[in-house]
Write a protein that binds this DNA or RNA. Sequence first.
DNA 1: CCTACCGATCGGTAGG
DNA 2: CCTACCGATCGGTAGG
Lengths: 193, 193
Amino acid sequence: MIETRRRQIEVAASELFRSQGYAATSVRDIARALDLQGASLYSHVASKEDVLFAIVDRAASRFEDALRAAEAAADANAVGPLERLASIVRAHATLVAREPELASVFATEWRHLGGERRSSILARRDAYEGRLRAVIADGMATGDLAMTDPAIAAAFLLSALNGIAGWFRPDGRLSAEDLADRYADLAVRALAT
Amino acid sequence: MIETRRRQIEVAASELFRSQGYAATSVRDIARALDLQGASLYSHVASKEDVLFAIVDRAASRFEDALRAAEAAADANAVGPLERLASIVRAHATLVAREPELASVFATEWRHLGGERRSSILARRDAYEGRLRAVIADGMATGDLAMTDPAIAAAFLLSALNGIAGWFRPDGRLSAEDLADRYADLAVRALAT
DNA sequence: CCTACCGATCGGTAGG
DNA sequence: CCTACCGATCGGTAGG
Protein backbone atom coordinates (compact mmCIF):
# COMPACT_ATOMS: atom_id res chain seq x y z
CA MET A 1 0.00 0.00 0.00
CA ILE A 2 2.09 2.87 -1.23
CA GLU A 3 0.83 6.44 -1.25
CA THR A 4 -2.01 5.53 1.11
CA ARG A 5 -2.02 8.92 2.78
CA ARG A 6 -2.23 10.68 -0.51
CA ARG A 7 -5.17 8.51 -1.47
CA GLN A 8 -6.91 9.19 1.82
CA ILE A 9 -6.57 12.90 1.15
CA GLU A 10 -8.16 12.52 -2.27
CA VAL A 11 -11.01 10.43 -0.95
CA ALA A 12 -11.77 12.84 1.89
CA ALA A 13 -11.49 15.78 -0.49
CA SER A 14 -13.86 14.14 -3.01
CA GLU A 15 -16.55 13.84 -0.38
CA LEU A 16 -16.12 17.42 0.79
CA PHE A 17 -15.90 18.83 -2.73
CA ARG A 18 -19.06 16.98 -3.64
CA SER A 19 -21.11 18.11 -0.67
CA GLN A 20 -19.82 21.68 -0.27
CA GLY A 21 -18.07 22.39 -3.53
CA TYR A 22 -14.36 23.04 -4.07
CA ALA A 23 -14.41 26.76 -3.30
CA ALA A 24 -16.32 26.34 -0.06
CA THR A 25 -13.99 23.59 1.17
CA SER A 26 -10.86 24.80 2.94
CA VAL A 27 -7.59 22.96 3.15
CA ARG A 28 -8.22 22.82 6.88
CA ASP A 29 -11.56 21.09 6.28
CA ILE A 30 -9.80 18.32 4.39
CA ALA A 31 -7.10 18.06 7.05
CA ARG A 32 -9.68 17.86 9.84
CA ALA A 33 -11.37 14.92 8.14
CA LEU A 34 -8.06 13.09 8.48
CA ASP A 35 -7.20 14.39 11.98
CA LEU A 36 -4.34 16.48 10.71
CA GLN A 37 -3.32 20.10 10.98
CA GLY A 38 -4.02 22.15 7.89
CA ALA A 39 -0.38 22.81 7.17
CA SER A 40 0.43 19.10 7.39
CA LEU A 41 -1.44 18.41 4.19
CA TYR A 42 1.33 20.17 2.32
CA SER A 43 3.70 17.32 3.12
CA HIS A 44 1.61 15.30 0.68
CA VAL A 45 0.23 17.72 -1.85
CA ALA A 46 1.61 20.82 -3.50
CA SER A 47 -1.63 22.79 -3.49
CA LYS A 48 -5.36 22.57 -3.04
CA GLU A 49 -5.81 22.72 -6.79
CA ASP A 50 -3.48 19.73 -7.14
CA VAL A 51 -5.90 17.66 -5.09
CA LEU A 52 -8.80 18.73 -7.27
CA PHE A 53 -6.88 17.93 -10.42
CA ALA A 54 -5.88 14.50 -9.14
CA ILE A 55 -9.52 13.67 -8.47
CA VAL A 56 -10.79 15.02 -11.76
CA ASP A 57 -7.98 13.38 -13.70
CA ARG A 58 -8.69 10.04 -12.09
CA ALA A 59 -12.39 10.41 -12.79
CA ALA A 60 -11.71 11.17 -16.44
CA SER A 61 -9.60 8.02 -16.74
CA ARG A 62 -12.28 5.91 -15.12
CA PHE A 63 -14.91 7.12 -17.57
CA GLU A 64 -12.56 6.62 -20.49
CA ASP A 65 -11.78 3.08 -19.33
CA ALA A 66 -15.46 2.28 -18.88
CA LEU A 67 -16.28 3.57 -22.34
CA ARG A 68 -13.41 1.68 -23.92
CA ALA A 69 -14.45 -1.54 -22.20
CA ALA A 70 -18.06 -1.13 -23.26
CA GLU A 71 -17.07 -0.51 -26.86
CA ALA A 72 -14.61 -3.42 -26.87
CA ALA A 73 -17.31 -5.75 -25.56
CA ALA A 74 -19.72 -4.48 -28.18
CA ASP A 75 -17.10 -5.10 -30.88
CA ALA A 76 -16.29 -8.57 -29.58
CA ASN A 77 -19.94 -9.60 -29.59
CA ALA A 78 -20.64 -7.84 -32.86
CA VAL A 79 -23.82 -6.35 -31.44
CA GLY A 80 -25.92 -3.74 -33.23
CA PRO A 81 -25.91 0.01 -32.52
CA LEU A 82 -28.84 -0.27 -30.12
CA GLU A 83 -27.11 -2.72 -27.84
CA ARG A 84 -23.86 -0.79 -28.17
CA LEU A 85 -25.58 2.36 -26.99
CA ALA A 86 -27.22 0.43 -24.16
CA SER A 87 -23.94 -0.96 -22.92
CA ILE A 88 -22.27 2.45 -22.99
CA VAL A 89 -25.12 3.99 -21.03
CA ARG A 90 -25.02 1.08 -18.61
CA ALA A 91 -21.28 1.48 -18.07
CA HIS A 92 -21.54 5.21 -17.50
CA ALA A 93 -24.51 4.92 -15.16
CA THR A 94 -22.87 2.16 -13.14
CA LEU A 95 -19.74 4.21 -12.64
CA VAL A 96 -21.66 7.31 -11.54
CA ALA A 97 -23.83 5.27 -9.18
CA ARG A 98 -20.88 3.45 -7.64
CA GLU A 99 -18.68 6.48 -7.24
CA PRO A 100 -20.95 9.48 -6.97
CA GLU A 101 -18.28 11.67 -5.35
CA LEU A 102 -15.84 11.13 -8.19
CA ALA A 103 -18.49 11.63 -10.84
CA SER A 104 -19.97 14.69 -9.21
CA VAL A 105 -16.63 16.45 -8.74
CA PHE A 106 -15.68 15.58 -12.31
CA ALA A 107 -18.94 16.92 -13.67
CA THR A 108 -19.12 20.18 -11.75
CA GLU A 109 -15.80 21.30 -10.22
CA TRP A 110 -13.51 21.35 -13.26
CA ARG A 111 -14.05 25.09 -13.63
CA HIS A 112 -11.91 25.73 -10.59
CA LEU A 113 -8.90 24.33 -12.40
CA GLY A 114 -6.39 26.73 -13.92
CA GLY A 115 -5.83 27.25 -17.62
CA GLU A 116 -3.93 24.24 -18.92
CA ARG A 117 -5.38 21.65 -16.62
CA ARG A 118 -8.82 22.93 -17.26
CA SER A 119 -8.51 22.80 -21.02
CA SER A 120 -6.96 19.34 -20.88
CA ILE A 121 -9.92 18.04 -18.88
CA LEU A 122 -12.40 19.77 -21.15
CA ALA A 123 -10.71 18.23 -24.16
CA ARG A 124 -11.11 14.77 -22.65
CA ARG A 125 -14.76 15.47 -21.85
CA ASP A 126 -15.29 16.60 -25.42
CA ALA A 127 -13.62 13.49 -26.79
CA TYR A 128 -15.81 11.30 -24.61
CA GLU A 129 -18.96 13.10 -25.70
CA GLY A 130 -17.76 12.88 -29.28
CA ARG A 131 -17.53 9.08 -29.04
CA LEU A 132 -21.08 8.93 -27.77
CA ARG A 133 -22.23 11.20 -30.57
CA ALA A 134 -20.51 8.96 -33.10
CA VAL A 135 -22.27 5.87 -31.76
CA ILE A 136 -25.60 7.67 -32.03
CA ALA A 137 -24.82 8.87 -35.55
CA ASP A 138 -23.85 5.32 -36.57
CA GLY A 139 -27.12 4.00 -35.23
CA MET A 140 -29.00 6.58 -37.23
CA ALA A 141 -27.12 5.59 -40.37
CA THR A 142 -28.14 1.95 -39.97
CA GLY A 143 -31.70 2.93 -39.23
CA ASP A 144 -31.67 1.51 -35.72
CA LEU A 145 -31.93 4.93 -34.15
CA ALA A 146 -34.43 7.62 -35.05
CA MET A 147 -33.13 10.70 -36.81
CA THR A 148 -32.26 13.45 -34.36
CA ASP A 149 -29.39 15.79 -33.81
CA PRO A 150 -26.72 13.47 -32.33
CA ALA A 151 -25.25 16.38 -30.37
CA ILE A 152 -28.54 17.09 -28.66
CA ALA A 153 -29.22 13.44 -27.99
CA ALA A 154 -25.75 13.01 -26.48
CA ALA A 155 -26.13 16.10 -24.28
CA PHE A 156 -29.54 14.89 -23.17
CA LEU A 157 -28.20 11.48 -22.18
CA LEU A 158 -25.03 12.71 -20.49
CA SER A 159 -26.93 15.20 -18.36
CA ALA A 160 -29.38 12.53 -17.30
CA LEU A 161 -26.52 10.14 -16.52
CA ASN A 162 -24.37 12.59 -14.59
CA GLY A 163 -27.42 13.70 -12.65
CA ILE A 164 -27.42 10.29 -10.96
CA ALA A 165 -24.59 11.52 -8.74
CA GLY A 166 -26.95 14.09 -7.26
CA TRP A 167 -29.54 11.76 -5.81
CA PHE A 168 -28.49 8.10 -5.94
CA ARG A 169 -27.71 6.41 -2.60
CA PRO A 170 -25.45 3.38 -3.08
CA ASP A 171 -26.86 1.86 0.10
CA GLY A 172 -30.49 2.33 -0.96
CA ARG A 173 -33.01 -0.26 -2.12
CA LEU A 174 -31.86 -0.04 -5.73
CA SER A 175 -28.45 -1.40 -6.74
CA ALA A 176 -26.16 0.50 -9.08
CA GLU A 177 -26.62 -2.26 -11.66
CA ASP A 178 -30.41 -2.15 -11.53
CA LEU A 179 -30.32 1.60 -11.82
CA ALA A 180 -28.00 1.30 -14.82
CA ASP A 181 -30.41 -1.13 -16.51
CA ARG A 182 -33.29 1.30 -16.09
CA TYR A 183 -31.26 4.14 -17.54
CA ALA A 184 -30.12 2.04 -20.48
CA ASP A 185 -33.73 1.14 -21.14
CA LEU A 186 -34.85 4.78 -21.03
CA ALA A 187 -31.98 5.81 -23.30
CA VAL A 188 -32.69 3.13 -25.90
CA ARG A 189 -36.40 3.88 -25.92
CA ALA A 190 -35.72 7.60 -26.32
CA LEU A 191 -33.54 7.06 -29.37
CA ALA A 192 -34.68 3.85 -31.06
CA THR A 193 -36.85 3.93 -34.16
CA MET B 1 -39.03 50.90 -12.51
CA ILE B 2 -38.74 50.42 -8.79
CA GLU B 3 -35.91 48.46 -7.17
CA THR B 4 -33.90 48.59 -10.38
CA ARG B 5 -30.59 48.59 -8.57
CA ARG B 6 -31.56 45.60 -6.54
CA ARG B 7 -32.54 43.78 -9.73
CA GLN B 8 -29.25 44.69 -11.39
CA ILE B 9 -27.42 43.20 -8.45
CA GLU B 10 -29.35 39.96 -8.76
CA VAL B 11 -28.76 39.73 -12.49
CA ALA B 12 -25.03 40.37 -12.17
CA ALA B 13 -24.82 37.92 -9.28
CA SER B 14 -26.70 35.23 -11.25
CA GLU B 15 -24.14 35.39 -14.01
CA LEU B 16 -21.21 35.24 -11.62
CA PHE B 17 -22.73 32.50 -9.48
CA ARG B 18 -23.38 30.49 -12.61
CA SER B 19 -19.90 30.80 -14.07
CA GLN B 20 -17.80 30.69 -10.89
CA GLY B 21 -20.17 29.34 -8.28
CA TYR B 22 -21.48 31.14 -5.19
CA ALA B 23 -18.55 30.40 -2.90
CA ALA B 24 -15.93 31.52 -5.42
CA THR B 25 -17.74 34.78 -6.10
CA SER B 26 -16.95 37.60 -3.69
CA VAL B 27 -19.21 40.50 -2.82
CA ARG B 28 -16.59 42.70 -4.42
CA ASP B 29 -16.85 40.70 -7.67
CA ILE B 30 -20.56 41.48 -7.83
CA ALA B 31 -19.95 45.14 -6.99
CA ARG B 32 -17.26 45.46 -9.64
CA ALA B 33 -19.68 44.19 -12.30
CA LEU B 34 -21.86 47.20 -11.44
CA ASP B 35 -19.00 49.68 -11.01
CA LEU B 36 -19.54 49.96 -7.29
CA GLN B 37 -17.40 49.57 -4.22
CA GLY B 38 -17.89 46.32 -2.37
CA ALA B 39 -19.29 47.94 0.73
CA SER B 40 -21.83 49.89 -1.32
CA LEU B 41 -23.72 46.71 -2.12
CA TYR B 42 -24.85 46.62 1.47
CA SER B 43 -27.03 49.67 0.88
CA HIS B 44 -29.21 47.36 -1.18
CA VAL B 45 -28.81 43.90 0.28
CA ALA B 46 -28.41 42.59 3.80
CA SER B 47 -25.95 39.84 3.00
CA LYS B 48 -24.42 37.82 0.21
CA GLU B 49 -26.67 34.92 1.11
CA ASP B 50 -29.69 37.19 0.73
CA VAL B 51 -28.77 37.75 -2.90
CA LEU B 52 -28.46 34.02 -3.48
CA PHE B 53 -31.79 33.37 -1.83
CA ALA B 54 -33.52 36.07 -3.87
CA ILE B 55 -32.24 34.44 -7.07
CA VAL B 56 -33.12 30.91 -6.05
CA ASP B 57 -36.52 31.97 -4.72
CA ARG B 58 -37.33 33.74 -7.95
CA ALA B 59 -36.18 30.75 -9.97
CA ALA B 60 -38.40 28.43 -7.94
CA SER B 61 -41.40 30.66 -8.59
CA ARG B 62 -40.67 30.75 -12.30
CA PHE B 63 -40.58 26.98 -12.52
CA GLU B 64 -43.73 26.67 -10.44
CA ASP B 65 -45.52 29.17 -12.67
CA ALA B 66 -44.37 27.38 -15.82
CA LEU B 67 -45.54 24.03 -14.48
CA ARG B 68 -48.89 25.45 -13.39
CA ALA B 69 -49.43 27.07 -16.79
CA ALA B 70 -48.55 23.84 -18.62
CA GLU B 71 -50.93 21.82 -16.48
CA ALA B 72 -53.71 24.41 -16.83
CA ALA B 73 -53.34 24.35 -20.61
CA ALA B 74 -53.41 20.56 -20.59
CA ASP B 75 -56.56 20.62 -18.47
CA ALA B 76 -58.22 23.22 -20.70
CA ASN B 77 -57.55 21.21 -23.84
CA ALA B 78 -58.34 17.91 -22.16
CA VAL B 79 -55.25 16.31 -23.67
CA GLY B 80 -53.97 12.85 -22.78
CA PRO B 81 -51.09 12.06 -20.41
CA LEU B 82 -48.59 11.92 -23.26
CA GLU B 83 -49.30 15.44 -24.45
CA ARG B 84 -49.48 16.65 -20.86
CA LEU B 85 -46.00 15.28 -20.19
CA ALA B 86 -44.75 16.82 -23.43
CA SER B 87 -46.03 20.25 -22.53
CA ILE B 88 -44.49 20.13 -19.07
CA VAL B 89 -41.14 19.09 -20.51
CA ARG B 90 -41.43 21.81 -23.12
CA ALA B 91 -42.20 24.45 -20.50
CA HIS B 92 -39.30 23.40 -18.29
CA ALA B 93 -36.83 23.18 -21.15
CA THR B 94 -37.87 26.56 -22.54
CA LEU B 95 -37.37 28.23 -19.18
CA VAL B 96 -33.92 26.68 -18.66
CA ALA B 97 -32.85 27.59 -22.19
CA ARG B 98 -34.09 31.17 -21.93
CA GLU B 99 -32.69 31.84 -18.48
CA PRO B 100 -29.73 29.52 -18.02
CA GLU B 101 -28.23 31.62 -15.21
CA LEU B 102 -31.38 31.44 -13.12
CA ALA B 103 -31.84 27.74 -13.78
CA SER B 104 -28.24 26.84 -13.16
CA VAL B 105 -28.01 28.73 -9.86
CA PHE B 106 -31.31 27.21 -8.78
CA ALA B 107 -30.16 23.71 -9.64
CA THR B 108 -26.70 23.79 -8.09
CA GLU B 109 -26.18 26.61 -5.56
CA TRP B 110 -29.01 26.00 -3.10
CA ARG B 111 -26.65 24.12 -0.78
CA HIS B 112 -25.01 27.38 0.19
CA LEU B 113 -28.23 28.54 1.79
CA GLY B 114 -28.63 28.31 5.55
CA GLY B 115 -30.99 25.97 7.38
CA GLU B 116 -34.49 27.33 6.94
CA ARG B 117 -34.11 28.86 3.52
CA ARG B 118 -32.42 25.74 2.29
CA SER B 119 -35.15 23.42 3.49
CA SER B 120 -37.85 25.69 2.14
CA ILE B 121 -36.26 25.59 -1.31
CA LEU B 122 -35.75 21.86 -1.14
CA ALA B 123 -39.39 21.40 -0.19
CA ARG B 124 -40.45 23.35 -3.27
CA ARG B 125 -38.12 21.31 -5.45
CA ASP B 126 -39.58 18.14 -4.01
CA ALA B 127 -43.12 19.34 -4.62
CA TYR B 128 -42.25 20.15 -8.21
CA GLU B 129 -40.66 16.78 -8.77
CA GLY B 130 -43.66 15.17 -7.08
CA ARG B 131 -46.01 16.79 -9.59
CA LEU B 132 -43.94 15.41 -12.45
CA ARG B 133 -43.94 11.96 -10.87
CA ALA B 134 -47.71 12.12 -10.50
CA VAL B 135 -48.15 12.95 -14.17
CA ILE B 136 -45.95 10.01 -15.10
CA ALA B 137 -47.81 7.69 -12.73
CA ASP B 138 -51.15 8.83 -14.21
CA GLY B 139 -49.90 8.08 -17.69
CA MET B 140 -48.88 4.60 -16.61
CA ALA B 141 -52.32 4.03 -15.09
CA THR B 142 -54.02 4.88 -18.39
CA GLY B 143 -51.57 2.74 -20.32
CA ASP B 144 -50.15 5.66 -22.30
CA LEU B 145 -46.80 5.41 -20.59
CA ALA B 146 -44.73 2.26 -20.17
CA MET B 147 -44.40 0.85 -16.68
CA THR B 148 -41.30 2.13 -14.92
CA ASP B 149 -40.49 3.59 -11.55
CA PRO B 150 -41.97 7.12 -11.79
CA ALA B 151 -39.34 8.42 -9.38
CA ILE B 152 -36.51 7.21 -11.59
CA ALA B 153 -38.17 8.47 -14.73
CA ALA B 154 -38.72 11.89 -13.16
CA ALA B 155 -35.13 12.10 -11.93
CA PHE B 156 -33.90 11.07 -15.38
CA LEU B 157 -35.93 13.77 -17.09
CA LEU B 158 -35.19 16.55 -14.63
CA SER B 159 -31.45 15.93 -14.80
CA ALA B 160 -31.56 15.99 -18.59
CA LEU B 161 -33.63 19.18 -18.54
CA ASN B 162 -31.57 21.06 -15.99
CA GLY B 163 -28.41 20.05 -17.83
CA ILE B 164 -29.48 22.35 -20.65
CA ALA B 165 -28.25 25.29 -18.56
CA GLY B 166 -24.74 23.89 -18.80
CA TRP B 167 -24.31 24.03 -22.55
CA PHE B 168 -27.14 25.84 -24.31
CA ARG B 169 -26.29 29.21 -25.91
CA PRO B 170 -29.42 31.35 -26.33
CA ASP B 171 -27.77 33.12 -29.26
CA GLY B 172 -26.80 29.91 -31.06
CA ARG B 173 -28.31 28.36 -34.16
CA LEU B 174 -31.03 26.56 -32.19
CA SER B 175 -33.83 28.55 -30.56
CA ALA B 176 -35.03 27.78 -27.04
CA GLU B 177 -38.36 26.65 -28.48
CA ASP B 178 -36.80 24.26 -31.00
CA LEU B 179 -34.61 22.83 -28.28
CA ALA B 180 -37.65 22.38 -26.06
CA ASP B 181 -39.46 20.52 -28.84
CA ARG B 182 -36.54 18.11 -29.22
CA TYR B 183 -36.43 17.45 -25.51
CA ALA B 184 -40.18 16.91 -25.33
CA ASP B 185 -39.86 14.44 -28.16
CA LEU B 186 -37.03 12.55 -26.46
CA ALA B 187 -38.94 12.49 -23.17
CA VAL B 188 -42.14 11.19 -24.72
CA ARG B 189 -40.31 8.51 -26.69
CA ALA B 190 -38.43 7.41 -23.58
CA LEU B 191 -41.62 6.90 -21.60
CA ALA B 192 -44.39 6.11 -24.08
CA THR B 193 -45.61 2.54 -24.57
C1' DC C 1 3.68 15.70 10.72
C1' DC C 2 3.68 19.95 14.01
C1' DT C 3 4.07 24.93 15.59
C1' DA C 4 4.35 29.37 14.26
C1' DC C 5 3.53 32.47 11.07
C1' DC C 6 2.75 35.23 6.45
C1' DG C 7 0.18 38.43 3.21
C1' DA C 8 -4.14 38.48 0.96
C1' DT C 9 -8.79 38.43 0.89
C1' DC C 10 -13.17 37.50 2.82
C1' DG C 11 -18.12 39.27 4.45
C1' DG C 12 -19.65 42.93 6.77
C1' DT C 13 -20.03 47.58 9.77
C1' DA C 14 -19.51 52.66 11.06
C1' DG C 15 -20.15 57.02 9.84
C1' DG C 16 -20.87 60.19 6.76
C1' DC D 1 -22.98 55.42 -2.47
C1' DC D 2 -18.05 56.20 -0.55
C1' DT D 3 -13.89 55.86 2.62
C1' DA D 4 -11.98 53.63 6.24
C1' DC D 5 -11.81 49.90 8.76
C1' DC D 6 -12.86 45.31 11.50
C1' DG D 7 -12.00 40.35 12.90
C1' DA D 8 -11.88 35.97 10.72
C1' DT D 9 -10.27 32.95 7.60
C1' DC D 10 -7.98 31.74 3.49
C1' DG D 11 -3.93 29.02 0.92
C1' DG D 12 0.56 28.40 1.72
C1' DT D 13 5.73 28.62 3.75
C1' DA D 14 9.69 28.12 7.15
C1' DG D 15 11.92 25.39 10.04
C1' DG D 16 12.19 21.77 12.67
